[in-house]
């Protein structure tokens, strides 16, 4: 229900690209504080557009987005930048600035809080640098601080990408296909890390993901998007063949839904 308790509230959001494609069609969505939500759907369903409309990397055509009661749509450039600090974004291809060091990439999360010249000369407040080291240590990358970002492996890069978003001191994480470029094991590690960090800090997250199994294992709520409309919204347990068909179209889903019991138990402990 669209209570005032919702951290993020999206109402009647539509996006039509100049090419004429309708990527989002009258989407309503509420995310309460601290909720990790997975957004699933076929390619081209508008998942990416939806989270980019939230922080207005993509300008919505119609509708309203509110974060912590503040209306994001309709903010001027300066106010939008201030609002973006509360929304950390994590990207599919990591989107680290490759030629900067790990530390610089993590610190770039503080750009919204730092003046231009201070950031130009890399003069960040001591507590920011300390915080960055604490986070790097948390994910086991403290010794890599002065390595260039392009020297890292995929999993390491995505960790740095997550830390950059956390440095913003956000209330909400917008996560765009965090595991699409990673191998299965690293994918699970990254997802686990994301969920843990969200719990530690009470962050809400919208995670775009095309891997239904990962979504079901790690998210507490699943939203299915198809052709720009929400066609499913419920707990992971409610995902069945009928729902998957509604989201993705006709296919024999029985095999995709059957999973070993012990793994279920292990993951349930983490995700709960």
């Amino acid at each position: 229900m669209p209570g005032d308790a919702a951290l993020l509230s999206v109402e009647g959001l539509s996006k039509r690209y100049p090419t004429g494609d309708l990527a989002l069609d009258d989407v309503d969505l509420q995310v309460p504080a601290g909720q990790v939500m997975a957004l699933i759907g076929p390619s081209g369903a508008g998942k990416s557009t939806l989270i980019r409309c939230v922080n207005r990397l993509v300008e919505p055509s119609a509708g309203r987005v509110r974060l912590e009661g503040e209306e994001i749509t309709g903010l001027g450039a300066t106010a939008l930048r201030r609002a973006r600090r509360r929304m950390g974004m994590i990207f599919q291809e990591y989107a680290l600035v490759e030629r900067l060091t790990v530390m610089e990439n993590v610190l770039s999360g503080r750009l919204g809080y730092t003046g231009f010249w201070a950031s130009w000369f890399r003069r960040f407040p001591r507590r920011d640098v300390e915080q960055a080291f604490r986070l790097l240590d948390r994910v086991g990358l403290a010794h890599m601080a002065d390595k260039r970002a392009d020297a890292l492996s995929g999993g390491q890069r995505q960790r740095v990408g997550i830390l950059r978003a956390l440095m913003q001191d956000p209330a909400l994480l917008l996560v765009d296909e965090p595991t699409a470029s990673l191998d299965p094991r690293t994918s699970r590690q990254i997802m686990r890390l994301l969920v843990e960090l969200c719990e530690e800090r009470g962050l809400a997250a919208i995670i775009n993901i095309h891997d239904v199994a990962l979504a079901r294992d790690f998210a507490r709520r699943i939203v299915g998007l198809r052709a720009g409309r929400i066609v499913f919204d419920g707990p992971p347990e409610a995902l069945d063949a009928e729902v998957l068909t509604r989201i993705y179209g006709e296919e024999d889903w029985s095999r995709a839904l059957r999973r070993p019991e012990e793994e279920d138990a292990e993951e349930a402990a983490t995700a709960a």
């Binding site: 201030r82 973006r84 950390g88 919204g112």
Partner: peptide
């Protein structure tokens, strides 16, 4: 996307 990522942090 690298530029987008920096924009998303709220940088000027």
């Amino acid at each position: 996307t690298q530029v987008e990522a920096v924009e998303a942090t709220g940088a000027g």
